[in-house]
Amino acid sequence: MNDGPMGEDNGPMGEDDGPMGEDDGPMGEDDRTGATTGESGVVVDAVGKTYEGDGPPVRALDDVSFAVDGSEFVCLVGPSGCGKTTLFRIIAGLTDASDGAVRLAGTPVTGPTTDMGVVFQEYHLFPWLTVEENVGFGLERSDRSEAERERRVDEMLGLVGLAEFRESYPKSLSGGMKQRVAIARALAVDPELLLMDEPFGAVDAQTREMLQRELLDVWASTGKTVLFVTHDVAEAVTLADRIVVMAAEPGRVAEVVDVDVDRPRERDDPAFGEHVARVRELIGARP
């Protein structure tokens, strides 16, 4: 398997040129309020979220800042209750932030946009549409010609290996196949960023490993920027160039960890184990 991800070396920005210096510590000391026009990837800039309810206001996220460079694969991990899902929804434009901003390729995210391909944990395929209709759903709203749309659907189905199931309805697919369709559907509109919320959380361990390998292949062949939310540390170390580790109460960035392990990564590689231990410690050690 050729696993040389284009992202690591070919990204439009070297990793060290990212808007956020990696050794700067979790909270931004540098001033990043001015949007740089040449920005690629996604920038999460001092995002906070406060829920006002009947009781005292709850601070779900506080001053969350990090960046995902173009073509980079970043995982977001953290203990339950650290606001991962809230942050995911804010980045996707499905929930408003109380403060701060999210920028995608330099443009502030003010609502859902087709520049982002979003994949949810529970697949959420449209059950009344066939596999190919699901994949083509977003394309119908683009200005592509019909021939172009068909070609794109074919390409996506080939990418996730589901060409022969194109006329099936989701009810007849396994969990792993449904998630492949969801990924193909998200990628079909050629988004800047693939944003995934625990996408492999609902499938069995074996399927999960297969999907992880496939996702890395897709990433390598498309060069997409990926932001992948997970609670599974080993999964994050398997996939990511960098791991944004979050802490809870309030949800904030604890640290950003570089994963300097060659791909394909094997779980019995000592370096792999060290990274897993380090991230686990960060999650556990922070109050």
Partner: peptide
């Protein structure tokens, strides 16, 4: 109708 399906629609450009 599941709110999640509406969210998926929004991210796929349903306007």
């Amino acid at each position: 109708v599941s709110e999640d399906l509406l969210d998926v629609g929004r991210t796929l450009g349903v306007g």
